[in-house]
Amino acid sequence: MSDERLKGERDELLMALIDRELAPEQELTMRAAIAADPVLARKAQALTQLSEVMRAHQQRELEEAQPALDAIWHRIERELQREAPRAVVSDAPGQRLRQAFAYWLTVYRGHLTTGLVAGVAAAAITAFAMSGRQTQVVPPAELAQPALPTLTPQLRLVGASGVDVEKTEFSNVEGSVYLQAPTTPGASPTSVIWIVRHATDCVPTTVPLTPTLPTNSNGEPI
């Protein structure tokens, strides 16, 4: 083993000693070597002083940065306290339930919104896919204004009615396009293009998406 290599290993051990990273046996060996070698002792002293200078510099930087760090932490804590809703506990069971639900709603509103958006998107896709069997309705406005032309969006009803409404435009009136459920069992629904002139007009009903079950005189399903 060459002298240069021995010197290199000894310097590494010396730095490890100053950083207190040596095992006890190695530390004793190195301290004995420093005591026996004046050159090594001076080198150890110089490295110790350098290490202390570096540590002091880091400490000073940390102290100078501390107020800024504290301010950041305070701001984060304030934000957390403001955003985190407090669950107010009430003695009334119903009120407690409502409060718990409101707390849950507030905490998970982000997830809820995401779920709602996904649900609406899924419903839209489903409605598009099933457009041949469903009803499209243009709800009439609360107050019709006959003086103003009212154009509805382009509607297309393709249903079991045997009539495909490719285009409908209402002018000067408000109106609806919908499928009328048949009044006799087994008959097909009918496409209806209905003018709504006044706010007192009925809003046309649409074909129910779920079939209505027959009921007895008490209103219970048979």
Partner: peptide, 26 residues
């Protein structure tokens, strides 16, 4: 309508025998 104003303009495709309802005029 009776005053000559256009109220509804539509294009429909009808199967033979199928009915479509136009209504709502007073």
């Amino acid at each position: 309508d009776a005053s000559g104003r256009l109220a509804v303009e539509s294009i429909i495709v009808m199967e033979d025998g199928a009915f479509v309802i136009y209504g709502g005029s007073i």
